[in-house]
Design a protein around this nucleic acid. Structure first.
Lengths: 125, 125
DNA sequence: AATATATCCGTACATCCGTTCAATTACACG
DNA sequence: CGTGTAATTGAACGGATGTACGGATATATT
């Protein structure tokens, strides 16, 4: 007679993982941040802004080839999260990456992740 | 009399940004990947699996303190994306990070992003 | 064979999110 | 002061997504 396999099956591994894994709260904040980047418009906005000192909304819409509404909406979320700052000059608003924005890391991950394996197969159907 | 400010306002910057910015298609694939990580359960699943060789669904539920359904669902999406692999042993299924998973980068970003400034203020209301 | 366990799957439901359209504010020009 | 442009905002719509529940499948125990 062996084991009924009640959990935990591997108490040691469970404890090792528990000691290291992000708390639900930390993971929630992380997810909010990643969710902000998990959008084509917002990711491209940050990418575009990392190439120039600053740009206004209309020009960003031209760069991304999307509506100004979409740009404005995306920039608002990024601004509320503190990832970009805005400067008003006349009737236009210029946006730039916020000071302290981890631009090297961001660009590194960006280029690296877009070049990753396609990853679209099952492993054990 | 100056300019009526038709776009592009800064043709040079627009062109510089255009030459560098991710295409809509690339950004779409990137967003799919980031969206996968932008979930507390899935992020913690990967984090937990990076601490041990492998774990079964029930044990992972214990580690994260969530339902087995949530774990199963999260693992399914991660598996379909090729980020984890599964191995069936008896009536339980063990999951591990897929070979080629960028674990060092992932953990680095994980710890770094969770320690970032809270970033919750306006800049120019 | 009968029962219990581990996992998965299909559905229903609620929720969140991004886009669109219309309307609005703010500002520059003449 | 009126007109047109830049940008934001609010409401409505459609689409995607995560969770909970019940059932199904496969396997192990007695």
């Amino acid at each position: 007679m062996v084991d009924h396999h009640h959990h935990p099956v591997h108490r040691d591994r469970v404890e090792a993982a528990r000691a290291r894994v992000l708390s639900a709260e930390e993971a929630g904040r992380l997810a909010s941040l990643l969710g902000l980047l998990a959008d084509p418009v917002r990711a491209r906005l940050l990418d575009a802004l990392s190439a120039v000192p600053e740009l206004c909304v209309g020009d960003l819409a031209l760069v991304l080839n999307v509506t100004e509404d979409a740009v404005s909406y995306g920039l608002r979320l990024l601004r509320l999260a503190g990832l970009v700052t805005s400067r008003k000059e006349g009737r236009m608003v210029f946006y730039r990456l916020a000071p302290g924005f981890p631009e090297p890391l961001f660009e590194h991950c960006l280029r690296l992740l877009t070049a990753l394996p396609r990853a679209h197969e099952e492993d054990d159907p």
